Computed example of a mutant assay.
Amino acid sequence: MPMTLTRIVVNRSHRQARLDIANRPGMHKTLMRLLAHPAGPTPRKNGGLLFRLEPGLDPVLLVQTADTPDLTGLPGGYGTTDTRDLTPMLTALTPGLPVRYRITAAPTAYRPTGAPPDSVTGRRPRGKITTLQGQDAQAWWQRQAANAGLHLTGPTETLRRPFPSPDRPAPFYKLTQFDGTATITAPDLLATALREGVGKGKAYGAGLLTLAPA
């Protein structure tokens, strides 16, 4: 299955772009227009849409899709774009290969609420989803990385990414960026993680894992 990554240098003077930077659900709606053939009850997942906003004087959107994106779906003047095929990168994944990684993710866990078990099934409620921070977030990423076929080889740098979305507050809107080095242990698992993303909040700018040569 093909996979592409589009780099969009966002035009801060564009009204819709400014609104999207301040509201990720709106950004998600804008980027869904890049899917040439959205289909089924989960079009984002079917289209392989993942994205990450990298802030700065010239904010950059990294947008991953399963197929070549329909760039005409972006509002005119939204930003400058460059798309590349990720197939060569996927085919180059080999055990022991050192890489640098970056991911902005939503570390979460279900915490017990103290509610009694269900009177019929005897099962306790799943609990309340909670954002993880500090060492808990680090431990979460270490587990996720191992499940994704990566062995972390150096210290992990973290940076909290506030999630500006005043209309829909939710736990997984609190994002953390993880940067570091790793070696590949399981190329098949890593390819799946790259395609499908990691963790929750994928429709809101979380979960896109990117790699570069170490």
Rank of each mutant, 00 (worst) to 15 (best):
46 N>L: 04
193 A>C: 08
149 G>S: 00
61 L>E: 13
205 G>R: 02
29 K>I: 01
39 A>V: 11
143 R>S: 12
145 A>Y: 02
58 D>W: 13
207 G>Y: 06
181 T>S: 03
144 Q>S: 14
52 R>Q: 11
37 H>T: 08
96 G>L: 14
149 G>E: 00
89 M>I: 07
22 A>R: 14
21 I>D: 11
1 M>W: 09
98 P>W: 14
196 E>F: 04
130 T>Y: 08
184 I>E: 01
159 L>D: 03
118 D>T: 07
82 D>N: 08
2 P>S: 12
211 L>W: 04
56 G>V: 03
92 A>S: 13
138 Q>S: 12
13 S>N: 12
174 K>F: 15
90 L>Y: 15
190 L>R: 02
54 E>T: 12
116 P>E: 11
23 N>W: 12
90 L>V: 15
208 L>E: 04
182 A>M: 05
189 L>N: 11
122 G>E: 15
54 E>Q: 12
145 A>P: 02
159 L>C: 03
114 G>M: 03
156 T>N: 10
88 P>E: 07
138 Q>T: 10
115 A>E: 13
166 P>H: 03
106 A>S: 12
70 D>Y: 04
85 D>I: 08
4 T>R: 11
1 M>C: 08
98 P>Q: 14
161 R>D: 02
11 N>L: 04
195 R>S: 05
164 P>A: 02
142 Q>C: 00
12 R>H: 13
171 P>E: 10
205 G>A: 05
59 P>F: 07
32 M>V: 10
41 P>G: 12
171 P>N: 09
139 A>Q: 09
184 I>M: 00
187 P>K: 03
37 H>G: 02
16 Q>T: 08
118 D>V: 07
154 G>P: 07
60 V>K: 07
7 R>D: 01
42 T>M: 02
84 R>L: 12
101 Y>Q: 12
77 G>P: 08
28 H>A: 09
123 R>F: 13
53 L>A: 10
96 G>C: 14
132 L>R: 09
109 A>V: 14
59 P>D: 07
176 T>I: 15
18 R>N: 12
182 A>Y: 02
203 A>S: 05
183 T>V: 07
134 G>V: 03
66 A>D: 11
174 K>V: 15
71 L>K: 00
207 G>P: 06
95 P>F: 13
138 Q>G: 12
117 P>M: 11
